[in-house]
Design a protein around this nucleic acid. Structure first.
Length: 191
DNA sequence: AGCGGGATTTTCT
DNA sequence: GAAAATCCCGCTT
């Protein structure tokens, strides 16, 4: 089976099921000849039934890719200066995505330090921080994660990490939904 | 360690 | 016109 179909199968499920399974998976970013890599350690699920989701209430120009096929990047701009990175999941026509809130840097750490002007956990322990570290912005909106400048690599091997399930951060509606997931004890989880 | 406010602009009502 | 899936800095304990 092709990589693309593999990825599509993995992602064609409800966001709150995919989100915990993305923990431990690898994000790979190509910037020219350079390769940056990180392990996903924190995610949040959003879907169309969810008042906290950008897709709530239907498709808009901004959320178009959320309603498209799974396996693509949905990037949004917020607070006048930050980008956040989501993986589109679920069936075509359903506005669902998983927000990547934190990663653990694995490769290209010097590049990330330069981009961030910081080091250690401060490189990538937040959704906008990791976008800055990985040089992700609006130009990556709609990128194909199976074969683009940002790739998602499913990690099936190794013992499953211990996962914590809790409520989401930074939202004002539907605040009690336990759709935030992170790897217990990872120092790279956001605050 | 914890709180409070400012930055800055897109997006939708 | 208001809010926003955030981050950073400075001030106070």
């Amino acid at each position: 089976m092709s990589r693309k179909n593999n990825l599509a199968n993995f992602l064609t499920r409800p966001a709150h099921e995919v989100a915990p399974d993305l923990l431990g998976c690898i994000i790979e970013r190509r910037v020219g000849v350079r390769v940056l890599r990180g392990k996903i350690v924190e995610t949040e699920a959003y879907d169309q039934t969810d008042a906290a989701s950008h897709s709530y209430g239907g498709e808009t120009p901004r959320t178009q890719v959320m309603f498209g096929p799974p396996g693509y990047l949905y990037i949004y701009f917020t607070y006048g200066m930050h980008y956040c990175c989501n993986i589109v999941v679920g069936e075509i026509g359903n506005g669902a995505a998983v927000l990547i809130r934190a990663i653990e840097p694995l490769k290209g750490i010097d590049f990330m330090k330069q981009r961030r002007g910081r080091a250690g956990v401060e490189l990538t322990n937040g959704p906008a921080k990791l976008c800055q570290a990985l040089a992700i912005n609006k130009e990556q909106n709609g990128v194909d994660l199976s074969d683009g400048e940002v790739r998602l690599v499913i990690n099936k091997s190794g013992a499953p990490a211990e996962t914590v399930t809790t409520t989401r951060i930074g939202i004002s509606r539907n605040v009690d939904m336990p759709w935030r997931f992170y790897i217990k004890d990872s120092p790279f989880v956001s605050r």
